[in-house]
Design a protein around this nucleic acid. Structure first.
Lengths: 151, 151
DNA sequence: TACAAATAGATGTAGGTACATGAAATATAC
DNA sequence: GTATATTTCATGTACCTACATCTATTTGTA
């Protein structure tokens, strides 16, 4: 769907301005789609991301701050996301043997299981719905890397 | 900044998968940048958007549902965003003469003023920081329009 | 060793968001 | 014309997020 239709707006100040709105809109669309899918599994978008990050780590165990640095939306709330996951027995906290300030998080078998099942449900449809091929995706990625408003 | 660096991740399943993460990351970066700027003016990103939408409307007055349909992040909370703006005397509610269910929202002069001042502060830096030219932006916009996970 | 600075993570607070529900007004069906 | 459905907006609730602060621990320096 064209952006003009999605947000009922016909003219933009420039292609660059439209681009900013377009990125915000597509991100919102993806996020709410994924959230809707994940709701069946009782977890949110960010909780799912934390599970994925843990899955990709050595021995499924990571420090809180390392999880934070890999999150797409860098928030200071990693401990709180972990609280929720721990309530659901999807992860477990341990104190680090090296440094008592650190907390190590690792996936439980229930966490691994949930991650597998939910990934199977989201992944294919999300990616396929893009209708964007490998080459186009590469172009997009290269151009998106130029967008750095943060400073 | 390349996505790999931003989220400390080296490999992705595919260019398409990376693209999804890239869009989410860029949107987050833009949004938190804008929010930080707007904080000086005491309004949030979405409150600013509502002001802008009202500015572009006929006689600066609109129905709540029309504002909602133009928002980038379609949420059911337009009334609550308007509550906040009304508290700050930036907008005012009127009941519609045509239909008593409808509420008409219009900008106050304070709202117009705040919008002008804050726009001057955000706009140039946001757009310029893109380092993306008109042509590249057009390519990006055309490709982004293909991304429609919502259904 | 003693003391200041830095780091890790937890927590308080205010505000934002999604989703469900509710009340009033209007439109539709019979 | 009355009953039902739909629309519009407001609100309740639970959760999420940003930002600031707090505590415990470790590091750095004299």
């Amino acid at each position: 769907m064209k952006l003009e239709l999605a947000i009922k707006t016909r003219k933009f100040e420039s292609e660059q301005h439209k681009l900013v709105l377009n990125i915000l809109y597509r991100a919102w669309a993806v996020k709410s789609y994924v959230n809707r899918k994940l709701k069946h599994y009782g977890i949110s978008h960010e909780q799912y991301n934390v599970l994925r990050i843990l899955k990709g780590s050595f021995h499924n165990a990571m420090r809180v701050k390392d999880i934070g640095s890999r999150l797409i939306e860098r928030s200071s709330n990693v401990p709180r996301i972990i609280d929720k996951l721990e309530d659901k027995k999807l992860v477990k906290r341990f104190s680090s043997p090296n440094d008592n300030r650190e907390t190590l998080i690792h996936l439980t078998s229930a966490g691994i299981k949930l991650l597998e099942v939910s990934t199977r449900s989201i992944q294919p449809s999300t990616i396929q719905s893009l209708t964007i091929n490998e080459k186009e995706a590469t172009i997009l990625n290269r151009l998106l890397d130029k967008i750095n408003p943060n400073n």
